[in-house]
Amino acid sequence: MRNIEEKVIVAGFGGQGVMLMGQILSYTATEEGLNTVWIPSYGPETRGGTANCSVIISSEMINSPVVPVPNTIIAMNKPSLEKFEPKLTPGGTALVNSDLIKDYTFRDDIIVYSVPCNAMALSLGNLKVANMIMLGAYLESTHLFEVQAIEKTFNKLFVGDKAKLITLNKNALSAGIEVVKKQRI
């Protein structure tokens, strides 16, 4: 089995779908036979302020379920970036929503991918898939799972009335993957 030890914090405004992003990673990890823990923030700060969740994905048994020092952060807005960028491990990766984060001086010991996921989501016709664009960007930056593995999770999660959203979400995922591919060059 692959040797994996990933610790990611996903953060944004309540309503941006950050909890779902984390859950999709944990669902996929479970399907892939990996160990995983998903922890949400569940304080009053979820009302209007920042919401976040932490996800650990590991090929080993997971001891501490909490993530004081993430390898990766996904910041869907500026308050989230300000809160979690200082915690990021040196050499870690920050994926940021560049539509809501402007004029920010990043640490020089981390890798940053800027993803205009709001504008991209609107061009796909639905602002709500900004999170899945970001998830695609995350996937391309970490190569944690094959894109098909995430799509399999979509098929499991989006059932009944939501099944019609699968194609849109797959397109969003692909768009996010492309953004990071381009920034790599």
Binding site: Q23, T36, I39, V66
Partner: peptide, 10 residues
């Protein structure tokens, strides 16, 4: 503790 109630794990 509250963490075990709130967290997801396989």
């Amino acid at each position: 503790d509250g963490l075990i109630g709130q967290m997801m794990e396989p």
